[in-house]
Simulated assay, not measured.
Amino acid sequence: MAHCNFQLRGEDSNRDEVFVHEWSKQLEVPFHVVRFATKQYAEDQKLSTQVAARKLRYEWFEEIRKEQGYDFIITAHHADDNIETVLMNFFRGTGINGITGIQPVYNKIRRPLLFTKRWELEAYLEREALSFVQDESNLHDDYTRNYFRNTILPLIAKTYPEVQQNLLDNISRFKEVDILYKREVEKLSKKLVQQKGEELYIPVLLLQKHRR
């Protein structure tokens, strides 16, 4: 188990670290922990706090994976995370790939819980009498993701109660479209692109012919 303490929430951050450490002891699995000066890093790199935390997190996960000889990095992203990501990408402006959601497999990263919604995970915890801690910052709209989670989606759900499932179904469709799109681009590239030395060319007349 690998835990990042971003030191952004005072004693709550330390409480989370202790909780995960104790959990690892109960499960008898190795525990890796790091403390980041996240705010300072974000200022130095001119990044938002969330982007800085994400960069620090994944770089450290990969370091641990290599050092310990682990095969994969497993994260707990779930369906709600996926929905929020797609909506943010859509409104921010993106191509087809941006609305295909969080990828279940990316390099050495695996995300096995993308199929399940947050309420289902909470129901499982309650049913199995498993304890957990809540990141209180998730309840406030300080970050864009939280605003979509706490305000935008509940408002949409008043008109379209099945909005979450509908979006998940659409994500599956977008993935299929993305596959077809990439196949077509690859097919056209083989027909249009010509190499001369180290440079690549697309003859204008040939391009116009295929656009008709």
Rank of each mutant, 00 (worst) to 15 (best):
S172M: 09
L205K: 15
P30Y: 03
L206S: 12
F91T: 06
E184Q: 12
T151F: 01
N146T: 09
R54K: 15
E62I: 04
E67K: 15
A76V: 03
L155M: 13
T144H: 00
S24K: 07
E186N: 14
D12S: 14
K108W: 11
S24E: 07
Q50P: 01
G10L: 13
F72A: 10
W119I: 02
A76N: 14
T75C: 09
T144N: 01
H3F: 15
F174G: 06
V185P: 03
V177C: 09
W60P: 00
A76R: 02
L114T: 03
Q164K: 12
K46D: 12
S189W: 05
R111S: 13
T116Y: 09
V105I: 15
F115Y: 14
E128I: 00
R149Y: 00
F115H: 15
V133D: 14
A53H: 04
Y147A: 00
S48F: 00
P104W: 03
V34P: 05
L206F: 03
S24L: 08
V163S: 11
K196L: 10
R110D: 00
T75F: 02
Y201I: 10
K196Q: 10
R9W: 07
E176L: 11
E162N: 11
Y70M: 10
K196N: 12
A157Q: 13
W119V: 00
T144V: 07
E67V: 08
Q194W: 06
R65V: 05
S172D: 11
F72G: 01
D44I: 15
E22A: 05
W60E: 02
I102K: 06
M88Y: 01
E186T: 11
H78Y: 07
R15H: 11
R65A: 06
S131M: 01
V34W: 04
Y160T: 15
F115A: 13
G10M: 09
G93Y: 04
L188P: 03
R92H: 07
T49K: 07
Q40S: 06
A79P: 08
R54H: 11
H78V: 02
L56E: 06
I109C: 04
V163Y: 05
D71E: 14
D71S: 13
K39T: 15
P112C: 06
E128S: 02
Y201D: 06
T116R: 13
N166H: 14
E22R: 13
Q7W: 03
Q50W: 04
S13C: 12
L155A: 15
A123L: 05
N150D: 05
N150T: 01
P112Q: 03
A53N: 10
D81Q: 07
N146C: 09
E128A: 06
L56I: 08
Y106E: 12
K158S: 02
C4G: 15
R9A: 15
D142L: 03
Q40K: 11
L130A: 08
F61S: 10
F148G: 00
Y147W: 06
